[in-house]
Write a protein that binds this DNA or RNA. Structure first.
Length: 521
RNA sequence: GCCCCUCUAGCUCAAUGGCAGAGCAGCGGACUUUUAAUCCGUUGGUUCAGGGUUCGAAACCCUGGGGGGGCACCA
């Protein structure tokens, strides 16, 4: 970094105006003052950006080891700690500072008599937000506050830009999402939410490794975006001069690996859907999918319950979560450790409408029922699709506590295996919590002849104008021809699980950098 | 894409048609056990942008922009 601050506008009016800029307190003047401090350090031969600092323990460990000290204790234990200056309190010939690292906070106790005039002046010159490394001894104040009595202190990095309000933090949602770094610095709630998210992901990996699943990585760039119904992002490869799609699901590649004999695989990966943005949808989001040879959907239901309940306990210490009602009418506390309800989609529609439905019914009957409930119906839709629409419009929003909805019609489940007791339904489930879909799993269709027929139905629907429907994936069919063993598969939307367990009601709160329009600079 | 709300100092917020303000941060000063330290003094504004109405606009109107919420979309 050079010392001429070419990002600052040159005031028109010469040296007097420059001095004016420096003595003001707008953002530019504030930055200029802090940059001047850096120049002064360099002039005195010090490096304001040293390369490293060796700390002896984290602030969490410091508190764990010394948190029980009596008030007014002076120890001779020397420690080296590092962190960011969050608060400064001057008290004559003393300075108290609150320093924070990733795991904790500690007070720095600075006495002019201990550190000498020069260092004392330098410490008084620190700004909120500066990173510092400290050597000192462990003590407690008269009031009992655990502190490090500073012997030596060095600046590790300067905060040239002032921190947000030390008490109110950042509340402007736009700024919080765009400048997530600032949000994380000042808002404990944001730090907590992301700790929960990342603990959930670690918990999933732990459970899956424990059960013998191998974590794999499959392509993000797809020649055909398959495995789900969604509009894809389109991109282009220059050398191959070809159109590529960002993946909308992990499914088809992972099942190829089961064909290859890997038996139990999972991937936690980003997928992309070129659709609307809302409190429940971000264009890129994280999906966990797993596939298990020799299993069917009933095992997938079991592991779904285990994964999510364990994640809640691992991330928050409790299996109790607060579930937001989809109509905004409040929250309900639910203990995930209790067994989750299971209900067939057709039975839920029956409950909600008072009319028994089944995909074997003539489509006219279901159209009439849909019309009764004000559910618009596309003329191309068959009985199965209309039942799904009826479910979404009459029953879905009532599913507050975790509910496995099972037995989806074949028409809307092109990759799921037909129910062993009912040829119109599939061995499939979706998990709903708070009226939102969190997971989807099934007994995987492994008959290549039937899969081809289902793909051809998808292709026909797409050709008829339904852009989100699928197409025939010849390579996937070739894989099935080598033999896919009986397989259970599962997909879980990690962002929504994070929302549930962290107790937040917007997906942007659990995505570090949510998709936003570009900022004008 | 449509509807509603919102945008004021670096941050958090006032000012409802009549002199743009406060707290925090900053700057100067006092203070050797503070805890958002306190106390005294003090700097800082393209009120998102542009246009209009008005003697007078942060406020009212129009257009545009960012964000939020809802609808639509959405395995």
């Amino acid at each position: 970094m050079s010392s001429d601050h070419d990002d600052l506008p040159l005031p028109a009016g010469g040296d007097a105006a420059t001095d004016d800029t420096i003595t003001g307190s707008g953002l530019l003047a504030e930055k200029a003052k802090r940059l001047q401090k850096l120049d002064a350090m360099r002039d005195s031969g010090a490096n304001p950006y040293p390369y490293r600092f060796d700390r002896s323990l984290t602030l969490h460990d410091l508190r764990a080891r010394f948190g029980d000290l009596e008030p007014g204790t002076e120890t001779s234990t020397e420690v080296a700690v590092a962190g960011r200056v969050m608060l400064l309190r001057e008290q004559g010939k003393l300075v108290f500072a609150t320093m924070r690292d990733r795991d904790g906070e500690v007070q720095l106790f600075v006495s002019k008599a201990v550190v000498g005039d020069d260092l004392f002046a330098a410490i008084r010159d620190l700004d909120l937000g500066d990173w510092v490394g400290v050597h000192g001894t462990v003590m407690t104040t008269r009031k009992g506050e655990l502190s490090v009595k500073v012997q030596r202190l060095e600046l590790l990095s300067k905060a040239v830009r002032p921190m947000p309000d030390k008490w109110h933090g950042l509340t402007d949602t736009d700024t919080r999402f765009r400048q997530r770094y600032a949000d994380l610095i000042v808002n404990e709630e944001a730090r907590r939410t992301f700790r929960v998210r990342h603990a959930i992901i670690a918990s999933f990996r732990h459970t899956l490794h424990e059960r013998g699943y191998i974590e794999v990585e499959t392509p993000v760039l797809h020649v055909e975006a398959g495995g789900a119904h969604a509009r894809p992002f389109i991109t282009h490869h220059n050398t191959l001069d070809m159109q590529l799609f960002l993946r909308i699901a992990l499914e088809l590649h992972l099942k190829r690996l089961i064909v290859g004999g890997m038996e139990r695989v999972f991937e936690i990966g980003r997928i992309f859907r070129n659709e609307g943005i809302s409190t429940r949808h971000n264009p890129e989001f994280t999906m966990m999918e797993l596939y298990q040879a020799f299993a069917d959907y009933s095992e997938m239901i079991e592991i779904t319950e285990t994964l999510i309940t364990r994640a809640a306990v691992d991330a928050t210490g409790s299996s109790v979560v607060q579930i937001f009602h989809p109509d905004g009418s409040g929250q309900t506390a639910v203990d995930l450790a209790q067994p989750w309800r299971r209900a067939r989609m057709i039975d839920l529609v029956h409950e909600a409408t008072g009319v028994a439905v089944h995909p074997s019914q003539p489509v006219e009957e279901l159209r009439a029922l849909a019309a009764q409930h004000g559910v618009p119906v596309n003329p191309r839709w068959g009985s199965g699709k209309i039942i799904e629409e009826l479910f979404e419009n009459t029953a879905e929003h009532t599913l507050i506590a975790p509910t496995f909805v099972t037995g989806h019609p074949v028409e809307i489940s092109p990759l799921a295996r037909v129910d062993r007791h009912d040829p119109f339904l599939t061995e499939r489930f979706e998990l709903f919590v708070g009226g939102r879909e969190l997971a989807n799993g099934y007994s995987e269709l492994n008959d290549p002849v039937e899969q081809r027929a289902r793909f051809e139905d998808e292709q026909a629907a797409k050709d008829a104008g339904d852009a989100e429907r699928g197409s025939v994936d010849e390579d996937y069919l070739r894989a099935l021809e080598f033999g896919l063993p009986p397989t259970g598969g599962l997909g879980i939307g990690m962002d929504r699980v994070a929302m549930l367990i962290a107790g937040v009601n917007s997906i942007k709160e659990v995505i570090l950098f949510p998709t936003l329009r570009p900022e004008a600079f």
